[in-house]
Amino acid sequence: MTKPSAPRRHLPTSPFAAPVTPVAKEFSLGDRVSHDQYGLGTIVGVEEGIAMLVDFGARQVRVLSPYSRMDRL
Rank of each mutant, 00 (worst) to 15 (best):
V33L: 03
G41I: 05
G39D: 12
M1D: 09
R9D: 06
F27I: 06
E48S: 12
G30T: 05
E26F: 09
F27Q: 03
T42D: 06
Y67Q: 10
K3L: 10
V46D: 01
G39M: 11
F16E: 09
V63Y: 01
F27V: 04
P12Y: 01
P12F: 00
V63G: 00
A17S: 13
T21P: 02
A6S: 13
R62W: 14
E47N: 15
A17I: 03
G30W: 05
F27P: 02
M1Y: 09
V33T: 03
A58K: 15
T42R: 12
H35W: 06
G41T: 08
V63A: 04
P4M: 04
S5G: 15
R59F: 04
V33W: 00
L11A: 15
A58D: 14
Q60P: 01
V46K: 00
T42Q: 13
D71I: 14
P15K: 06
S5M: 09
A51T: 06
P15G: 08
P7E: 05
L29A: 06
A51D: 03
G49Y: 00
T21K: 11
T42Y: 00
T2E: 14
H35R: 03
I50K: 15
S28T: 15
P22A: 08
V23Y: 04
E26R: 08
E26L: 07
S68V: 14
H10V: 00
R72Q: 14
S65E: 09
P66I: 04
R62S: 13
L11K: 13
A24I: 04
R9C: 04
L64P: 00
D55Y: 01
R69V: 01
L53H: 09
G41D: 06
D31A: 11
R69P: 00
F16M: 10
L11M: 12
S65G: 11
Q37N: 10
P19I: 01
R69Y: 08
T2D: 13
D55I: 04
G45L: 09
L73W: 11
I50W: 11
Q60K: 15
R32P: 03
V46C: 05
R72I: 12
V54P: 00
D36E: 10
P66Y: 11
H35V: 00
A58T: 14
E26G: 05
V33G: 01
P66L: 09
H10S: 00
F27N: 04
T2C: 09
